[in-house]
């Protein structure tokens, strides 16, 4: 089950680990993505903290921790291949894995239907 923020990040919990990325909508809006600054492995980020920056040819945009947690892993493939974010923002181009502090955190976020409605507004 995927959850979304109003800042267009997604989070999906698999076996107690929260995978985090930016939504396909966000990637499409940015256009060709040319660079990503990944969060620090081992570092703790509170919900809403800046995790990093994603840049396209035309724009740069910060992305934020959708929930609180320590970074267990980062997707280093994106450093050499940031265009993967355009191709597969919500699957192969996950950005980091967070150690979930509180499993209930995701319940405050939008589910897929709510996010689709949010985008429709």
């Amino acid at each position: 089950m995927k959850y979304y923020t109003e800042e267009h990040e997604w989070v999906e919990v698999k076996d107690g680990v929260a995978y985090v990325g930016i939504s396909q909508h966000a990637a499409d809006e940015l256009g060709d993505i040319t660079y990503i600054e990944l969060p620090q492995e081992g570092e703790f980020y509170g919900s809403g903290d800046t995790l990093g920056v994603v840049e396209s040819v035309k724009a740069a945009s910060d992305f934020y921790a959708p929930i609180s947690g320590k970074v267990l892993a980062i997707n280093t493939d994106l450093e050499d291949n940031p265009e993967l974010l355009n191709e597969s923002a919500e699957d192969e181009a996950w950005i980091c894995q967070l150690d979930l502090e509180n499993a209930n955190d995701v319940k405050d976020l939008m589910d897929e239907d709510a996010y689709a409605e949010f985008l429709g507004d």
Binding site: G31, D32, T34, S56, V57, K58, N86
Partner: peptide, 10 residues
């Protein structure tokens, strides 16, 4: 128009 279908880099 800032870009068309396949993007600025293409």
């Amino acid at each position: 128009p800032v870009q068309y279908g396949d993007g600025i880099i293409a």
